[in-house]
């Protein structure tokens, strides 16, 4: 094979160390466990209180009649579903190096998050009971309050990544920051579902 250039095969491409994605996965797991703790206490107390109420009054009362409306809670859930689509859109747009779509998707995701906080504030106002007047009120405010803080943190995470994207970071080869923000966002959305069921549906 005289005269033919002999070249070694290219070195295998090594995977990047995806510290932000891995770290976010650990944080998301911890946050999920925090809410699992809250849900467990809520269910445990409600179960015991209902047993007592049933034996005393023959009824099954938890929240006062009309205190929890089905519409705001369900609207919040639909909003979180839309935000899942927009954050996934952002990740895909970065993978395609489509920055214009990515910016639009991130902006919409943050707006959806803000809308959920707004709806949750409305639901709390609509509830009509002060935080320190009953067991259900205390637990409802704890769940909603904790979730608002979580959602605020998720929006802040997306905003930070948005700023880094505006500064030129992230592209089709490295969208770790956006993917990490998406993982945290998914965890946040998943955590709304038990809240919706425990408060809006079972009332």
């Amino acid at each position: 094979m005289a005269g033919q250039a002999v070249t070694a095969p290219p070195a295998a491409e090594l995977s990047r160390n995806r510290t932000l994605v891995v770290g976010t996965a650990f944080v998301s797991a911890a946050v999920i466990m925090l809410f699992v703790g809250l849900f467990s206490v809520y269910i445990s107390i409600r179960q015991n209180n209902e047993l007592k109420i049933e034996s005393l009054l023959g009824g099954n009362l938890w929240f006062p009649e009309g205190a929890v409306q089905i519409a705001p809670g369900t609207m919040m859930m639909f909003t979180t579903w839309i935000s899942v689509m927009t954050i996934s859109w952002a990740v895909q747009a970065f993978r395609n190096d489509d920055r214009r779509n990515a910016y639009a998707a991130l902006t919409l995701t943050m707006l959806m998050g803000a809308a959920v906080i707004n709806q949750m504030a409305f639901a709390i106002g609509d509830f009509g009971l002060p935080v320190d007047r009953s067991t259900p009120a205390t637990l409802l405010f704890t769940l909603y309050g904790s979730y608002i803080i979580l959602l605020g943190a998720a929006i802040a995470f997306v905003f930070l990544m948005f700023m880094r994207a505006l500064a030129g970071q992230f592209n089709s080869k490295n969208a770790d920051g956006i993917e990490a923000a998406a993982i945290f966002w998914y965890a946040t959305v998943i955590l709304y579902h038990p809240i919706w069921y425990l408060i809006t549906i079972t009332k």
């Binding site: 809250l38 637990l139 704890t142």
Partner: peptide, 18 residues
């Protein structure tokens, strides 16, 4: 620790509000 100690924090959040 990451899976168990947040549950302790959740206990204290409820206790705090209560």
């Amino acid at each position: 620790w990451l899976l168990s100690l947040p549950v302790l924090i959740s206990n204290m959040i409820i206790a705090y509000v209560d």
